[in-house]
Simulated scan of single mutants.
Amino acid sequence: MKKSIRALLLLSLFGFSSTSFALSESEAEDLADLTAVFVYLKNDCGYQDLPDGQIRKALVFFAQQNRWDLTNYSSFNMKALGEDSYRDLSGIAVPNDTKCKSLARDSLSLLAYVK
């Protein structure tokens, strides 16, 4: 179970790098996965005070580090992708405390880069 959480995080945090082409479907899904991680931390793990603006900056920073071009970001239904990712993350059969600790450990450091 712990491996599946790590695999999900690795996919969402590192994704596939490309050389500044329009955002692909898999990259949009990776952004949605990362967004779902932050939403899960806020809603289910007691991190309500995470500022939305800082989360947005972290998502843009993540995309820039991967050299993703976000010009076609609005062509994807990011709300639906994010909801699917959140549902998938919520459905992982691991105790919530364990899931929260793992998600926080592996993703909150990204916010430090955009303060």
Rank of each mutant, 00 (worst) to 15 (best):
K2W: 01
A63G: 05
R6C: 06
R105P: 02
G46T: 06
F76Q: 02
K3N: 12
L70H: 03
T98V: 09
S17H: 11
Y113P: 00
G53W: 06
Q48R: 08
T98M: 10
A63T: 08
T98S: 11
L11H: 14
D49A: 13
S109H: 13
C100R: 00
L9W: 02
F76P: 00
L10M: 10
P95H: 05
L89F: 06
D33F: 03
G91R: 12
K2C: 13
A104E: 03
S20R: 15
R67N: 10
N66A: 14
G15A: 05
N43I: 08
G53N: 12
S4L: 14
K2H: 07
I92N: 04
E27T: 02
V60L: 11
L23H: 03
Q48C: 04
M78E: 00
F16Y: 11
T71E: 08
Q54A: 08
A28E: 00
L111T: 02
K57V: 08
T98I: 13
G15E: 00
A112C: 09
A7T: 13
A32G: 03
V94H: 06
V39M: 11
Y73L: 05
L50E: 01
R56H: 12
W68I: 04
L111D: 01
T98Q: 11
Y47I: 04
I5F: 00
Y40K: 04
K2E: 06
S12A: 15
V60Y: 01
N77M: 12
L70Y: 07
A28N: 01
T19M: 09
S18T: 09
R6D: 09
L111Q: 01
N77V: 11
G46N: 04
R56C: 10
G46F: 11
L9M: 13
S4M: 13
M78W: 10
L103K: 03
L81N: 00
E29D: 11
L110F: 10
E83W: 06
A58P: 00
T35K: 10
N96Y: 01
L110K: 04
L23K: 04
S4N: 09
I5T: 07
N72I: 01
